[in-house]
Design a protein around this nucleic acid. Structure first.
Lengths: 257, 257
DNA sequence: GGTCGGCATTGATAGGTATCAATGACCTTC
DNA sequence: GAAGGTCATTGATACCTATCAATGCCGACC
């Protein structure tokens, strides 16, 4: 069991965008202090306003970062997938609750030890800095997507974001001759919370996009993107960069590794 | 002129949340490398997709961070006020354009020198890390505000955010016996871009809030918050934390220093 | 096999917002 | 003082979405 944990962790740390550039010594130190954890869908990993005792790095599954509003509704501010890190370093309590959207595993680094290592290993501190910088850009891209008045536009933006962000995760994205197949990793209610709307509207907009021939709905959570250009147009986003991402995906059309 | 620049910079660096905790040597090094710049309203400071040559720290005025969409519309992802920093360190090109929303001054640190100092001075690197962590939280708070379906709710959230974030900047916030007076630092069009809507809707929602007695519109850009509780309710936000911020403001009701 | 519960979908309706168009207030400029 | 421009506001209308309600689908569980 320990062996299994170690192996999974090593894979995760080298695969993670945050930790891929670390010096071997630093990575060894990280592996030595980490402990694998697994949660079932719906469980809470970190409560908002609580000083979490660890920094986490997702190994598998999806975590959602969210805030519960005064009226009980929840809004999701981000999803965490394999390779993503979470938890605050050198700073106060978490602002958002983190819950498992699906069954999920992650490795946890004790906060105190992690911070001590950061102070000792400049490459780790630099890696964290770069990681947060990217997170910030992603959060701001979300702002753009959420600012789209029409729900179909937000969904399009979401699908495009999945394509650009999860392009190497083949259980989410799967290029095919007919287009790009996207596995939506969360249910309609979560998707609605993420896009600032309601499940009914998600459903209607998705089917509207299908009727226009932009996408196909293979299953409720499996979408086939047919017309990349129309999708980018609906998303009202920088067309050129979105399409180039999608074209890349279609070209790299690897059968399987 | 040099003297004036130095003085302004020193004030800014100690007042800035990002740099307030630095060691004196580090701050001196920063001051030595910085150069004051000023822009007029509407001018572009950094173009999106460009490697900016400097890191900036706002001294006065308002900068807006934005992205131009395919159809020519612009969406604002954040505002920068005095003490805020901008520009990317150790990473690629900027994702967003930065423009002066009002006449503005900031001090610029040459990127290469700044990065060299960061590598040399761990306290600076740590300060930047904490700064970006806070930026990230703020961006995610924006996500919550933008997820509000009703425009009046978004405006309420925006006003509350101004109160919590700019509580020490007295040319923006001014507590009074009747409530809190807020100076909105941007015009209706920018506010609409920020909140993902249109100027007409901003106007209507603002006047609707006035008719309900929640706020007063002293001038188009001067809002008096009368009923803090109703505002928090409209914003659909964590009532307790929002109200406590506002109560604090009303208590500290300093006449002027 | 049958029942229950979660989830996606569909329908009907009321309410809110985008959009187009026009007006008015204020400031700058000549 | 007149003219032009920017900006906030107001009005009318079509469109879109939230909401409530109901149906159908599917897997879990007994």
């Amino acid at each position: 069991m320990t062996g299994k944990t170690r192996k999974g962790t090593r894979l995760a740390l080298s695969g993670s965008t945050a930790f891929s550039q670390l010096r071997p010594e630093t990575r060894d130190a990280l592996e030595a202090m980490c402990r694998a954890k697994s949660y079932r869908a719906g469980q809470t990993v970190i409560h908002a306003q609580e000083h979490s005792g660890f920094i986490g790095c997702v190994l598998s599954g999806i975590l959602r970062m969210q805030k519960t509003l005064a009226d009980g509704r929840e809004h999701i501010v981000g999803l965490l997938v394999e390779g993503d890190t979470f938890g605050r370093v050198f700073d106060g309590a978490a602002e958002f609750t983190i819950e498992a959207a699906t069954d999920a595993e992650f490795c946890a680094f004790p906060r105190t030890k992690f911070e001590a290592l950061m102070t000792r290993a400049p490459d780790l501190e630099r890696a964290i800095l770069l990681n947060i910088t990217n997170e910030l850009d992603r959060a701001r891209e979300w702002l753009i997507i959420l600012s789209n008045q029409k729900i179909a536009g937000r969904i399009s933006g979401f699908l495009l974001l999945l394509c650009s962000r999860f392009r190497d995760i083949d259980h989410i994205l799967q290029p095919s001759p007919e287009g790009i197949e996207v596995k939506i990793p969360i249910n309609r209610a979560d998707l609605a919370h993420l896009l600032g709307t309601r499940p009914e509207s998600i459903s209607r907009s998705l089917h509207s996009l299908r009727d226009q021939g932009v996408i196909d709905i293979l299953e409720p959570d499996r979408i086939l993107i047919r017309d990349t250009k129309a999708l980018a147009l609906a998303a009202d986003v920088d067309e050129i960069e979105a399409i180039s991402t999608l074209q890349d995906l279609l070209k790299n059309h690897r059968p399987e590794h």
